[in-house]
Write a protein that binds this DNA or RNA. Structure first.
Lengths: 204, 204
DNA sequence: TAATTTGAGGACCGATCGGTCTATATATCA
DNA sequence: TGATATATAGACCGATCGGTCCTCAAATTA
């Protein structure tokens, strides 16, 4: 047995800023303006780092962007795991899930948009690293929605002839479409009404 | 009565390129890369114009972009006016409309994306001229889809409890969501299947 | 203390950005 | 012919881009 490769203590001055917090602030900057329109001074202001520290910690703008995108995706997936948890009723879970999207895609929240959708449109066609992440996110969402719909189906809560897997694809398209239309800041009540109307077409 | 203000003939050398064709080529350039990532050399290459001619004809990059966006929107609205014409059966029209979106959002077409959705995500939050156009397009689409659904309803072709106006909003979100998910180049057959499945929830 | 590493701040780099302008040729009208 | 307007080509502009480097102070380990 080899000796435990104890993490060697770093010898110099320890890093004094929170890397995850910096990623989060960078995420917010990219979220507000998109990748190309976010310049280095924007990122320095958002993270409160110097150029040197930022480049030492993250390498370059593109790498930092991928970290920010990963953070955004992880947050969204974690939220779905709570909302659509198997420990909750599947229909209640789907209602919560949709209500969350309604909230995030109406009024001022809607106008702010979605980092993932903006990134998909701006970069996914040209950047394979981005494309992988975007495609992975859609798969993750679809899997969780399909799982909830399957549970609803076995519980007899779905209307006849509703296939959980194709209904899940429909709901994914719908909520991503909400993000697009949400850029025009629709009223929360009308978005909520159509989300309800759609879900009602699927349940018994 | 005053004299007819006859359009004065221009006195110098007449313009020798087709302005509309130039707008179309610029539109294709913006469509491929988005607003910020499309640089002036890209536009000069696409339009085959010199810097001088382009600036004389269009003013600046932003103005040219608005012309290109207007062209894109006009094309899309004209297509919907044909597909959803009152002279055709409303359900057939909606099927044609959806099939067109399926075609444009799957495979390589899907990967190319949509100038309007990309613009909505990239600029609508910051650029009021863009925002007006994006919001206007969604309204135009919704109106045409709602009209078709209304005609279907009076013809008894809609399922019970389907409200044409909220179903129209749902379909608008769905097709714009298709454009987003389409960036990952899904198979045409699966997109067609879910479009059919959704429409089937609304018709009798 | 000496060595090491990070910190902030900013000078500096080549490249590119959107946009203006000049020179010269060409095509129209009066 | 002379005036006018457009054409191309490219020089040129200041500003900004992403990224590197340097200086000096501070914080840690050896």
């Amino acid at each position: 047995m080899s000796r435990q490769p104890l993490a060697q203590l770093p010898r110099g001055r320890p890093r004094s800023f929170d890397v995850d917090a910096a990623v989060e602030h960078a995420m917010n900057a990219f979220w507000s303006r998109g990748y190309h329109a976010t310049a280095l001074p924007d990122l320095l202001r958002a993270t409160k780092l110097s150029r040197g520290s930022l480049y030492a910690a993250f390498g370059d703008k593109h790498s930092l962007f991928l970290r920010a995108l990963d953070r955004y995706i992880a947050d969204a997936v974690a939220r779905m795991d709570v909302e659509l948890s198997p420990r909750k009723g599947p229909i209640d879970g789907l209602r919560t899930f949709l209500a969350g999207y309604v909230e995030r895609t109406s009024g001022a929240n809607g106008r702010r948009g979605c980092l993932l959708v903006a990134t998909a449109m701006e970069l996914a066609g040209q950047d394979s690293e981005v494309n992988r992440r975007v495609a992975g996110f859609f798969r993750a969402m679809e899997a969780r929605v399909a799982s909830a719909l399957s549970r609803a189906k076995t519980a007899g809560q779905l209307a006849e002839d509703v296939d959980p897997s194709s209904a899940a694809k429909i709901l994914v398209c719908f909520v991503e479409g909400l993000r697009v239309v949400g850029k025009t800041a629709p009223a929360r009540t009308t978005s909520q009404a159509i989300a309800d109307a759609l879900l009602d077409r699927f349940i018994r």
